[in-house]
Write a protein that binds this DNA or RNA. Sequence first.
DNA 1: TGTACATCAGTGAACGCGCGTTCACTGATGTAC
DNA 2: TGTACATCAGTGAACGCGCGTTCACTGATGTAC
Lengths: 199, 199
Amino acid sequence: MARPKLDTSIRQQQIVQAALDIVADYGPKALSMARVASRLGMVPSAIYRHFAGKDAMLDAAMDLIGRKLMDNVTAATGLTADPMQQLRELLLRHVRMIRENLAIPRVVFSEDALGASVERKARARDILRGYLAAIAGIIEGGQAQGAIRRELDSKTAAMIFMGLILPAGILWHVTDGRFDVTRHAERAWQIFSRAMSPR
Amino acid sequence: MARPKLDTSIRQQQIVQAALDIVADYGPKALSMARVASRLGMVPSAIYRHFAGKDAMLDAAMDLIGRKLMDNVTAATGLTADPMQQLRELLLRHVRMIRENLAIPRVVFSEDALGASVERKARARDILRGYLAAIAGIIEGGQAQGAIRRELDSKTAAMIFMGLILPAGILWHVTDGRFDVTRHAERAWQIFSRAMSPR
DNA sequence: TGTACATCAGTGAACGCGCGTTCACTGATGTAC
DNA sequence: TGTACATCAGTGAACGCGCGTTCACTGATGTAC
């Protein structure tokens, strides 16, 4: 009873990771049960031992993305107490995420994932809101200690922060990785941090 | 010879518009030849009188999006000579575009459209680059006449400009239009214009 | 003006394909006696 | 330690479905005489 449960949870992880890898490599349209299975050396029907169906698998994948985003926040805020430094860390992690695991931006903007069910759209909404709220929280922390202009609306600033990297991620994807996201992030950060700073 | 050509070009417009409407209403996954046809009261095979296939239809749709984006630029720059006013106009038009025709952000980020062929990805890349270049051009104009900080990298600033509205568009979509894009755009503009201004 | 013809947008049946999913099964593994 | 049994991840054939696309056709319309 302990072993099979472990096996299943390991298999679930493997399946979700395989699904995200496929989306990263070939796009959401290429994500089929057959492809996921073959990537793990299984037969398509075997996946149904671990997930009720494709929808359940996608839900798990979306949860993983949400967790990874939040892990970034936790890691960045744990590294330093300076809110501007935290934002900078978060930005760099976001860049790394785009470069390493293209699946995240692809899935987040994918209609395959969002268009399908009301529940998944709600899930995506909650992930996005949670992430934005976390960023806004950092900004408010900065405002409280005077490192960030107090007149700024923290939520708007959080959205702009996301916007620093989002179009760059798309351009990176559309140019097959030839666009230099890291350099862009550095430059965008200069402008952003200046816009945040009081004076 | 004159009439059939006209008819075909009208039909092509109708078909492309129907395709964009479907994407706007139900997402890229719902975009099938059958659905496009039924929206126009036709039979699926009739579409093949006007387009070689689905790919050709999607190419035309992407071209239309590119044209609409560029129309926005032309309209905004034609309205005033002040580069900051031009950017503001462009931002508002972008907001209106999101609110009216959800298809544009949906298609631009859709993997259904991008993932498929190398050529379409290249087309999307060119549209995006063209749009960014146009924005960068406005910014450089502003720098030349001293309305915008000269130290700014115009391309980075152009990307940030796009980023003002992009995450908001996603949030708008994911909340089924409950997120107030217009208000966000106003607030984001305040922050952006301040970051652009010299002093 | 009236008739014969060419053009061509639209039709409808048919196709092959990949998809998500089902279900009875197999056979390895861990457990009980 | 050895045997009998239960568990359950993985199998493979089969399914119904919607998709993009084809092709021989129809019938309205514009043109030539």
